[in-house]
Nucleic acid binder design. Structure first.
Length: 551
RNA sequence: GUGCCCGUAGCUCAAUGGAUAGAGCAUCAGCCUUCUAAGCUGAGGGUUACAGGUUCGAGUCCUGUCGGGCAUACCA
């Protein structure tokens, strides 16, 4: 809807002989007395034109003319806002687009022909997913969904490492538990994974092999078994939340030589070396980040000869560019906050355009039960598990709670609140609105033979109640909400928006009789209801929550 | 110590640099012989942690102070 105004404002600017590259901002005033839309363009230009905003605004509205029955009033208000008042019939006519576009309402083609990659979760298979990981997972998944609506060809990728030190500790942990299971007395180190799932894996091995592994020193069977079981459980947990990656990138491939005889890791070292950013001392290979103003250099290859996590991280990102992605989105937890800057610096040195990369860092999740905070740690085995959370509150509530807050804020996941099957739970509020419409349409079909699938929106224009106009106008904001979510990588704005739609619908439902109205009015209100249902459905799909037809 | 995030109603949180800072919960007062009351209407509740600055305009941007979280590894 905002786009509607742009050409007219540009036209007025041209007529006034004003050239500017300033972005024309259209906003929806909070207070309706300021019109349906407004622009602050006069403020933005007043300074460089050495005039006052009110005067400029007055001049501009004199140069704007809108088609019949679209904008009914333009006025200058306050210190220089230009406010537009729409013809309600224009709003209702426009709302037909929701019906016409259906499931693709809100879609755009701006990303057409471009590949985007979203990397999220990326937990190493050392244990079951914790609640904290879920937040990044849902955030990444929603961002991928949002990008897909804009025409991007989206890859959802999971990056993992099954070769590092943590996996070694995992294998040893399983072996200790296995030896215990064989009846041998061993001391389980505090540094190792304490969780019960280690015992379960050991039990699996014991059932399959009895105690015949007790004397072998090799760890590979322990590691492979653990990895297989844990990875399967991670993927199962994710799929419960409708998170399904289509690419799993194993860090190990970065160690293997390609066609040119060098590994991606080695290529990074060589390239950085050529630029003079590599030094070798103390038996290690260093990335000279001090040349970039940092306090210390960073180790890329340890004195053991193994790369530190930084090197494959850089090499991994190189592959994202080399695989042809024009948009690269990374979702990290706050604990990895120091990881990305070094990667970005290295990529810049190697000549890659880091502007294509967008990083979303989500803050931590604390869960509270009965007002008490649970601290989490995978190593100590007292983590609150994502699976347990889903068991308790359901997949829809889990997803919604994870994204209903800004990623920059700590999330306080109140399990008691989410568990309550009552109006306190925001997911019910949204879903109830959808179910209510479905029920209404079922009844309309039964009583009047109303065919929702055949509705074209021809009767929308008979609607004149303020709440009806407001609702239709709000529905038309949906495409812009998607763009806003992407601009800030904040799907939470969609939750807020849908909540507002649900609220307006409930109000409309309360104030306006639908099935009891005369035929024309009834049809118009049913059509508006279908529009609402469509926007809710589309929004729910982006957020990955279900749209129940009855509750 | 340094870097990043946060500090907004009793609680959990919103608010592209815009006009009188908004929702939900909780509290209080109303609305079902009427399409789903899992709903709606209304009321109370604020020096946006504090002090400066930038400008037509600051919760938002800049500087500093205080408070909380995270990170500061040859772990990932």
């Amino acid at each position: 809807m905002r786009d509607f105004f742009i050409p007219f404002i540009q036209g007025a600017l041209r007529s006034a002989g004003i050239e500017t590259d300033k972005e024309i901002q259209i906003e929806k005033p909070n207070d309706k007395k300021f019109g349906d839309f407004s622009t602050n363009i006069a403020f933005l230009l007043a300074k460089e034109l050495k005039t006052n905003p009110r005067e400029l605004a007055g001049k501009l509205i004199g140069l704007m003319s809108f088609p019949e029955s679209t904008v009914v009033k333009i006025e200058v208000a306050g210190p220089g806002f230009v406010n537009f008042h729409l013809d309600p019939a224009f709003v209702m006519r426009s709302a037909r687009e929701v019906l016409v576009s259906g499931d693709s309402f809100g879609r755009r083609s701006v990303g057409e022909g471009q590949k985007a990659i979203v990397e999220y979760v990326s937990a190493n298979p050392t244990g079951p997913l914790t609640v904290g990981r879920g937040r990044g997972g849902v955030l990444g998944d929603c961002i991928a969904n949002l990008l897909a609506t804009q025409g991007y060809e989206v890859t959802r990728e999971y990056y993992f490492n099954d070769a590092g030190r943590q996996m070694q500790i995992l294998a040893e942990s399983v072996r200790f538990r296995y030896l215990e299971r064989c009846g041998l007395s061993v001391e389980f180190p505090q540094t190792h994974y304490q969780g019960d799932y280690i015992r379960d894996i050991a039990e699996t091995l014991f059932i399959e092999h009895g105690d015949e592994l007790a004397n072998s020193e090799g760890l590979s069977l322990f590691k492979e078994t653990a990895e297989g079981i844990i990875f399967a459980s991670i993927r199962k947990t994710l799929s419960r939340l409708s998170i399904n990656h289509d690419s799993f990138f194993n860090e190990h491939t970065l160690y293997q030589s390609g066609d040119n005889g060098t590994s991606p890791n080695q290529s990074v070292i060589d390239a950085l070396d050529a630029k003079g950013f590599i030094s070798r001392h103390e038996n290690a290979t260093w990335f000279m980040t001090t040349r970039l103003g940092q306090e210390k250099d960073k180790v890329l290859i340890k004195s053991t000869g193994d790369p530190s996590y930084r090197l494959p991280d850089i090499a991994y990102h190189v592959t994202k560019f080399e695989r042809g992605y024009s948009l690269i989105v990374n979702i990290f937890g706050a604990d990895h906050i120091d990881e990305y800057p070094d990667v970005a610096e290295a990529l810049k040195i190697l000549g890659y355009d880091t502007e294509r990369i967008r990083v979303a860092i989500n803050q931590f999740v604390t869960t509270t039960v009965g007002g008490q905070t649970i601290k989490m740690s995978t190593r100590k085995g007292n983590a609150d598990l994502l699976d347990d959370l889903i068991d308790e509150v359901g997949a829809d509530a889990t997803r919604l709670f994870f994204i209903m807050r800004s990623k920059d804020s700590h999330l306080n996941f109140d399990i008691d609140l989410a568990k309550r099957q009552s109006k306190d739970n925001p997911v019910f509020y949204l879903q109830y609105a959808h179910a209510r419409i479905c029920s209404l349409l079922r009844m309309a079909s039964k009583e009047f033979g109303f065919d929702a699938d055949a509705a074209k929106g021809d009767s929308l224009e008979v609607l004149v109640e303020p709440v009806e106009i407001e609702l239709a106008s709000a529905l038309l904001d949906y495409p812009e909400v998607i763009q806003s979510c992407l601009r800030f990588l904040e799907p939470q704005k969609m939750v807020e928006y849908l909540h507002g739609i649900a609220e307006l619908y409930h109000k409309f439902y309360q104030e306006c009789p639908i099935l009891k109205a005369d035929e024309q009015m009834r049809t118009g209100r049913l059509e508006l209801s279908i529009c609402v249902r469509q926007v809710l459905r589309n929004g729910f799909a982006l957020l990955g929550i279900s749209a129940p037809e009855s509750m």
